[in-house]
Protein backbone atom coordinates (compact mmCIF):
# COMPACT_ATOMS: atom_id res chain seq x y z
CA UNK A 1 0.00 0.00 0.00
CA UNK A 2 2.52 2.53 1.11
CA UNK A 3 4.75 1.03 -1.47
CA UNK A 4 2.12 1.76 -4.09
CA UNK A 5 1.68 5.40 -3.04
CA UNK A 6 5.42 5.76 -3.12
CA UNK A 7 5.49 4.40 -6.63
CA UNK A 8 2.65 6.64 -7.70
CA UNK A 9 4.35 9.60 -6.11
CA UNK A 10 7.57 8.64 -7.80
CA UNK A 11 5.91 8.34 -11.19
CA UNK A 12 4.10 11.62 -10.69
CA UNK A 13 7.30 13.30 -9.68
CA UNK A 14 9.13 11.85 -12.64
CA UNK A 15 6.33 12.98 -14.92
CA UNK A 16 6.47 16.44 -13.44
CA UNK A 17 10.19 16.80 -13.85
CA UNK A 18 9.81 15.45 -17.33
CA UNK A 19 7.18 18.08 -18.11
CA UNK A 20 9.29 20.72 -16.48
CA UNK A 21 12.40 19.75 -18.34
CA UNK A 22 10.58 19.25 -21.61
CA UNK A 23 9.21 22.76 -21.23
CA UNK A 24 12.84 23.75 -21.30
CA UNK A 25 13.69 21.20 -23.89
CA UNK A 26 11.50 23.20 -26.23
CA UNK A 27 13.71 26.11 -25.60
CA UNK A 28 16.79 26.94 -27.55
CA UNK A 29 19.40 28.67 -25.48
CA UNK A 30 22.25 30.83 -26.62
CA UNK A 31 25.29 31.40 -24.44
CA UNK A 32 27.62 34.27 -25.24
CA UNK A 33 31.26 33.64 -24.42
CA UNK A 34 32.77 37.14 -24.52
CA UNK A 35 36.20 35.79 -25.47
CA UNK A 36 37.81 33.62 -28.11
CA UNK A 37 37.50 29.82 -28.15
CA UNK A 38 39.77 28.06 -25.70
CA UNK A 39 39.90 30.58 -22.89
CA UNK A 40 38.35 30.32 -19.44
CA UNK A 41 35.04 31.95 -20.36
CA UNK A 42 34.73 29.93 -23.51
CA UNK A 43 35.36 26.65 -21.73
CA UNK A 44 32.87 27.63 -19.03
CA UNK A 45 30.25 28.40 -21.68
CA UNK A 46 30.92 25.17 -23.52
CA UNK A 47 30.85 23.16 -20.30
CA UNK A 48 27.43 24.59 -19.45
CA UNK A 49 26.33 23.82 -22.98
CA UNK A 50 27.53 20.26 -22.56
CA UNK A 51 25.68 19.73 -19.27
CA UNK A 52 22.48 21.39 -20.51
CA UNK A 53 22.27 19.12 -23.52
CA UNK A 54 23.46 15.96 -21.76
CA UNK A 55 20.89 16.30 -19.02
CA UNK A 56 18.16 17.31 -21.44
CA UNK A 57 17.61 20.62 -19.67
CA UNK A 58 17.60 22.37 -23.00
CA UNK A 59 16.99 21.11 -26.49
CA UNK A 60 19.77 22.94 -28.19
CA UNK A 61 22.37 25.28 -26.87
CA UNK A 62 24.52 27.44 -29.05
CA UNK A 63 27.75 29.02 -27.87
CA UNK A 64 28.62 32.28 -29.59
CA UNK A 65 32.08 33.76 -29.15
CA UNK A 66 32.23 37.54 -29.17
CA UNK A 67 35.85 38.46 -28.65
CA UNK A 68 37.38 41.70 -27.65
CA UNK A 69 38.50 44.16 -25.02
CA UNK A 70 38.37 41.98 -21.93
CA UNK A 71 34.81 40.94 -22.73
CA UNK A 72 33.38 44.44 -23.00
CA UNK A 73 32.67 44.04 -26.72
CA UNK A 74 30.63 40.96 -25.89
CA UNK A 75 28.92 42.74 -23.01
CA UNK A 76 27.89 45.69 -25.18
CA UNK A 77 26.45 43.37 -27.79
CA UNK A 78 24.72 41.28 -25.14
CA UNK A 79 23.07 44.23 -23.40
CA UNK A 80 21.82 45.32 -26.79
CA UNK A 81 20.57 42.04 -28.22
CA UNK A 82 19.45 40.09 -25.17
CA UNK A 83 17.16 42.80 -23.85
CA UNK A 84 14.03 41.07 -22.54
CA UNK A 85 15.11 37.79 -24.15
CA UNK A 86 15.12 34.90 -21.68
CA UNK A 87 16.87 32.55 -24.10
CA UNK A 88 20.24 34.28 -23.96
CA UNK A 89 22.92 34.00 -21.30
CA UNK A 90 26.44 35.34 -21.01
CA UNK A 91 29.46 34.13 -19.09
CA UNK A 92 31.56 36.73 -17.31
CA UNK A 93 34.00 37.12 -14.47
CA UNK A 94 36.24 39.34 -12.40
CA UNK A 95 38.38 40.29 -15.42
CA UNK A 96 35.34 41.84 -17.08
CA UNK A 97 34.65 43.93 -13.99
CA UNK A 98 38.14 45.39 -14.34
CA UNK A 99 37.99 45.72 -18.12
CA UNK A 100 34.77 47.72 -17.96
CA UNK A 101 36.58 50.28 -15.82
CA UNK A 102 39.92 50.41 -17.63
CA UNK A 103 38.24 50.50 -21.05
CA UNK A 104 35.74 53.12 -19.91
CA UNK A 105 33.00 50.89 -21.29
CA UNK A 106 29.68 52.67 -21.80
CA UNK A 107 27.77 49.53 -20.73
CA UNK A 108 28.32 48.01 -17.30
CA UNK A 109 27.30 44.94 -15.36
CA UNK A 110 24.56 47.00 -13.69
CA UNK A 111 22.57 46.58 -16.89
CA UNK A 112 22.50 42.78 -16.96
CA UNK A 113 20.37 40.45 -14.83
CA UNK A 114 22.63 38.46 -12.50
CA UNK A 115 21.84 34.75 -12.46
CA UNK A 116 24.56 32.90 -10.60
CA UNK A 117 28.21 32.73 -9.75
CA UNK A 118 29.60 29.37 -10.83
CA UNK A 119 33.29 28.84 -10.14
CA UNK A 120 36.05 30.63 -8.29
CA UNK A 121 39.65 29.71 -8.82
CA UNK A 122 42.11 30.81 -6.18
CA UNK A 123 45.29 32.60 -7.17
CA UNK A 124 48.64 31.60 -5.83
CA UNK A 125 51.63 33.77 -4.93
CA UNK A 126 54.92 32.05 -5.73
CA UNK A 127 58.62 32.81 -5.63
CA UNK A 128 61.41 30.98 -7.47
CA UNK A 129 62.74 28.01 -5.52
CA UNK A 130 66.13 29.67 -4.93
CA UNK A 131 64.63 32.94 -3.74
CA UNK A 132 65.71 34.14 -0.28
CA UNK A 133 62.07 34.94 0.45
CA UNK A 134 60.54 32.08 2.41
CA UNK A 135 57.24 33.41 3.67
CA UNK A 136 54.46 35.87 3.06
CA UNK A 137 55.82 37.97 5.90
CA UNK A 138 59.24 38.29 4.29
CA UNK A 139 57.64 39.21 0.98
CA UNK A 140 55.43 41.77 2.72
CA UNK A 141 58.48 43.24 4.46
CA UNK A 142 60.33 43.48 1.17
CA UNK A 143 57.38 45.23 -0.47
CA UNK A 144 57.12 47.60 2.45
CA UNK A 145 60.84 48.39 2.39
CA UNK A 146 61.01 49.20 -1.32
CA UNK A 147 58.08 48.37 -3.60
CA UNK A 148 60.14 49.16 -6.69
CA UNK A 149 62.61 46.34 -6.00
CA UNK A 150 59.89 43.71 -5.73
CA UNK A 151 58.85 42.83 -9.26
CA UNK A 152 55.65 40.89 -9.79
CA UNK A 153 54.91 38.79 -12.84
CA UNK A 154 51.32 38.08 -13.73
CA UNK A 155 48.59 38.31 -16.33
CA UNK A 156 47.12 41.34 -18.08
CA UNK A 157 47.11 44.77 -16.48
CA UNK A 158 43.98 45.32 -14.41
CA UNK A 159 43.17 41.61 -14.23
CA UNK A 160 42.73 39.47 -11.13
CA UNK A 161 46.51 38.93 -10.74
CA UNK A 162 47.20 42.64 -10.79
CA UNK A 163 44.41 43.28 -8.31
CA UNK A 164 45.90 40.74 -5.92
CA UNK A 165 49.37 42.31 -6.18
CA UNK A 166 47.91 45.72 -5.38
CA UNK A 167 45.85 44.46 -2.44
CA UNK A 168 48.91 42.61 -1.14
CA UNK A 169 50.99 45.77 -1.23
CA UNK A 170 48.26 47.72 0.51
CA UNK A 171 47.86 45.11 3.24
CA UNK A 172 51.63 45.04 3.68
CA UNK A 173 51.52 48.73 4.44
CA UNK A 174 53.00 49.92 1.16
CA UNK A 175 51.70 52.28 -1.52
CA UNK A 176 49.76 50.26 -4.16
CA UNK A 177 50.56 52.84 -6.83
CA UNK A 178 54.25 51.97 -6.43
CA UNK A 179 53.76 48.26 -7.11
CA UNK A 180 56.18 47.12 -9.81
CA UNK A 181 53.78 44.82 -11.62
CA UNK A 182 54.92 43.44 -14.96
CA UNK A 183 52.04 42.29 -17.14
CA UNK A 184 52.66 39.26 -19.35
CA UNK A 185 50.38 37.92 -22.00
CA UNK A 186 49.23 34.57 -20.74
CA UNK A 187 50.43 32.42 -17.88
CA UNK A 188 53.20 30.82 -19.93
CA UNK A 189 55.39 33.87 -20.32
CA UNK A 190 54.96 34.89 -16.69
CA UNK A 191 55.93 31.37 -15.65
CA UNK A 192 59.07 31.53 -17.78
CA UNK A 193 60.04 34.79 -16.11
CA UNK A 194 59.56 33.10 -12.73
CA UNK A 195 61.62 30.05 -13.60
CA UNK A 196 64.36 32.21 -15.05
CA UNK A 197 64.45 34.11 -11.78
CA UNK A 198 63.81 37.42 -13.53
CA UNK A 199 61.15 38.58 -11.09
CA UNK A 200 60.70 38.51 -7.34
CA UNK A 201 57.27 36.96 -7.18
CA UNK A 202 54.59 35.68 -9.49
CA UNK A 203 50.82 35.44 -9.41
CA UNK A 204 48.63 33.13 -11.40
CA UNK A 205 45.80 30.66 -11.09
CA UNK A 206 46.90 27.78 -8.86
CA UNK A 207 46.36 25.26 -11.65
CA UNK A 208 48.83 27.01 -13.96
CA UNK A 209 51.69 26.79 -11.46
CA UNK A 210 50.69 23.54 -9.79
CA UNK A 211 53.07 21.29 -11.63
CA UNK A 212 56.05 23.58 -10.99
CA UNK A 213 55.16 23.87 -7.32
CA UNK A 214 54.97 20.11 -6.96
CA UNK A 215 58.26 19.69 -8.80
CA UNK A 216 59.89 22.10 -6.39
CA UNK A 217 60.85 24.71 -8.97
CA UNK A 218 58.56 27.32 -7.49
CA UNK A 219 57.73 27.91 -3.83
CA UNK A 220 54.08 28.64 -3.13
CA UNK A 221 53.82 31.25 -0.40
CA UNK A 222 50.10 31.66 -0.18
CA UNK A 223 46.78 31.09 -1.79
CA UNK A 224 44.35 33.96 -2.21
CA UNK A 225 41.04 32.28 -1.43
CA UNK A 226 39.25 32.25 1.91
CA UNK A 227 40.02 28.61 2.63
CA UNK A 228 42.74 26.18 1.68
CA UNK A 229 42.48 24.01 -1.37
CA UNK A 230 41.54 20.40 -0.73
CA UNK A 231 44.44 18.96 -2.73
CA UNK A 232 47.23 21.35 -1.87
CA UNK A 233 48.96 22.18 1.37
CA UNK A 234 49.33 25.91 0.80
CA UNK A 235 48.20 28.32 3.53
CA UNK A 236 45.88 31.22 2.75
CA UNK A 237 46.92 34.86 2.97
CA UNK A 238 44.51 35.37 5.86
CA UNK A 239 46.15 32.61 7.87
CA UNK A 240 49.39 34.49 7.49
CA UNK A 241 48.02 37.74 8.73
CA UNK A 242 47.24 39.58 5.52
CA UNK A 243 43.57 40.33 5.21
CA UNK A 244 43.33 39.84 1.46
CA UNK A 245 40.97 37.62 -0.50
CA UNK A 246 40.78 37.57 -4.30
CA UNK A 247 39.18 34.81 -6.28
CA UNK A 248 39.09 34.56 -10.05
CA UNK A 249 35.36 33.94 -10.23
CA UNK A 250 33.21 33.18 -13.23
CA UNK A 251 29.49 33.78 -13.37
CA UNK A 252 26.56 33.66 -15.71
CA UNK A 253 24.14 36.49 -16.35
CA UNK A 254 21.01 37.09 -18.43
CA UNK A 255 19.96 40.06 -20.50
CA UNK A 256 18.39 43.29 -19.22
CA UNK A 257 14.64 43.64 -18.60
CA UNK A 258 13.62 40.01 -18.30
CA UNK A 259 10.59 39.29 -16.12
CA UNK A 260 10.87 37.94 -12.58
CA UNK A 261 9.48 34.55 -13.68
CA UNK A 262 11.96 34.31 -16.51
CA UNK A 263 14.77 35.09 -14.12
CA UNK A 264 13.47 32.49 -11.69
CA UNK A 265 13.26 29.80 -14.33
CA UNK A 266 16.76 30.57 -15.67
CA UNK A 267 18.12 30.51 -12.13
CA UNK A 268 16.49 27.11 -11.58
CA UNK A 269 17.96 25.76 -14.79
CA UNK A 270 21.43 26.93 -13.84
CA UNK A 271 20.98 25.45 -10.38
CA UNK A 272 20.12 22.09 -11.95
CA UNK A 273 23.26 22.33 -14.02
CA UNK A 274 25.43 23.11 -11.02
CA UNK A 275 23.90 20.34 -8.94
CA UNK A 276 24.28 17.71 -11.67
CA UNK A 277 26.92 15.01 -11.49
CA UNK A 278 28.04 15.96 -15.00
CA UNK A 279 28.97 19.41 -13.72
CA UNK A 280 30.83 17.93 -10.76
CA UNK A 281 32.75 15.79 -13.22
CA UNK A 282 33.69 18.84 -15.31
CA UNK A 283 34.85 20.78 -12.26
CA UNK A 284 37.10 17.90 -11.36
CA UNK A 285 38.53 17.57 -14.87
CA UNK A 286 39.20 21.23 -15.34
CA UNK A 287 40.43 21.78 -11.80
CA UNK A 288 37.79 24.45 -11.14
CA UNK A 289 36.62 25.24 -7.62
CA UNK A 290 32.88 25.33 -7.05
CA UNK A 291 31.83 28.83 -5.99
CA UNK A 292 28.10 28.64 -6.60
CA UNK A 293 26.01 31.55 -5.42
CA UNK A 294 22.65 32.58 -6.84
CA UNK A 295 19.82 35.02 -6.36
CA UNK A 296 20.04 38.09 -4.15
CA UNK A 297 23.35 37.18 -2.50
CA UNK A 298 24.98 36.98 -5.93
CA UNK A 299 23.55 40.33 -7.01
CA UNK A 300 24.96 41.84 -3.84
CA UNK A 301 28.31 40.13 -4.41
CA UNK A 302 28.48 41.51 -7.95
CA UNK A 303 27.83 45.03 -6.66
CA UNK A 304 30.46 44.73 -3.94
CA UNK A 305 33.02 43.32 -6.34
CA UNK A 306 32.47 46.22 -8.76
CA UNK A 307 33.13 48.73 -5.99
CA UNK A 308 36.13 46.83 -4.66
CA UNK A 309 37.80 46.33 -8.05
CA UNK A 310 37.13 49.97 -8.89
CA UNK A 311 38.87 51.09 -5.69
CA UNK A 312 41.88 48.87 -6.32
CA UNK A 313 42.30 50.02 -9.92
CA UNK A 314 42.11 53.62 -8.75
CA UNK A 315 44.72 52.95 -6.09
CA UNK A 316 47.19 51.54 -8.63
CA UNK A 317 46.42 54.39 -10.99
CA UNK A 318 44.91 52.34 -13.82
CA UNK A 319 41.63 54.17 -13.47
CA UNK A 320 41.47 57.88 -12.85
CA UNK A 321 38.84 58.81 -10.32
Amino acid sequence: MSHLTKTIRGVAFAAMTLVASSAFAQQELKIIAPAGPGGGWDSAARSIQQVLTQTGLAKSVQVVNVTGAGGTVGLAQFVNQAKGDPSQLMVNGITMVGAILTNKSPVTLDQVTPIARLTGDPLVIVVPANSPIKSVKELADAVKADPAKVTWAGGSAGGADHILAALFAKAAGSDPSKVNYIAFSGGGEALAAMLGGRVTAGISGYGEFESQIKAGKLRALAISSGKRLANADVPTLKEQGLDVEVVNWRAIVAGPDITAEQKKSLTETVEKVVKSKEWAEILKQRGWEDFYLAGEPFSAFLKEEQVRVGDVLKSVGLVKS
Partner: peptide, 28 residues
Protein backbone atom coordinates in the same frame (compact mmCIF):
# COMPACT_ATOMS: atom_id res chain seq x y z
CA UNK B 1 59.02 19.92 -19.97
CA UNK B 2 57.65 22.90 -18.06
CA UNK B 3 53.96 23.01 -18.77
CA UNK B 4 54.60 26.36 -20.43
CA UNK B 5 52.22 27.11 -23.26
CA UNK B 6 53.91 29.52 -25.64
CA UNK B 7 51.40 29.62 -28.46
CA UNK B 8 47.63 29.64 -28.64
CA UNK B 9 47.57 26.02 -29.75
CA UNK B 10 49.96 24.97 -27.01
CA UNK B 11 47.75 26.72 -24.46
CA UNK B 12 44.79 24.73 -25.60
CA UNK B 13 46.76 21.49 -25.69
CA UNK B 14 47.68 22.25 -22.09
CA UNK B 15 43.97 22.47 -21.33
CA UNK B 16 43.69 19.11 -23.08
CA UNK B 17 46.30 17.59 -20.78
CA UNK B 18 44.58 19.05 -17.78
CA UNK B 19 41.20 17.65 -18.68
CA UNK B 20 42.73 14.22 -18.13
CA UNK B 21 44.24 15.34 -14.86
CA UNK B 22 47.72 15.38 -16.38
CA UNK B 23 49.98 18.27 -15.61
CA UNK B 24 52.72 18.73 -18.17
CA UNK B 25 55.90 19.71 -16.49
CA UNK B 26 58.97 18.26 -14.88
CA UNK B 27 56.99 15.44 -13.33
CA UNK B 28 55.18 14.29 -16.43
Amino acid sequence: TLGLPTSATAAIMLAGFQQYGLNPGPLL
